[in-house]
Amino acid sequence: MMNKRRIFWALLVIALVVVGLGQSLAQEIPPEQPAQKAQVMEDQGKIIPSPKDIKERTAIYVFIGWMWLSITVLIFILRAKIKETDRLYHLRFFSQKKE
């Protein structure tokens, strides 16, 4: 029983990490040429970084969307954890033994 549980957790964590990495691989599209995001204005010699094309711009939007979605989900989970540990603390669950 314990082993099945551990296997399940290991698989889930690996799956989430792989999905996370995979999504970011899909999003951060490697540029073909060396001069990627720079628009060098010849007259001033100033380099202003910006996405090279619509593909990169979309990738950036997707990444920011994924990031904020993850942050929202994580905050949601953390609030549940906070409620739980506060409840346990007030029940003096932790006072006698160390976990």
Binding site: I71, L74, I75, L78, R79, K81, I82, T85, D86, Y89
Partner: peptide, 13 residues
């Protein structure tokens, strides 16, 4: 873990 969980929310934001 109580305060650290709250801190993690601040860090994420």
């Amino acid at each position: 873990p109580n305060f650290v969980y709250r801190e993690m929310i601040v860090w994420l934001i």
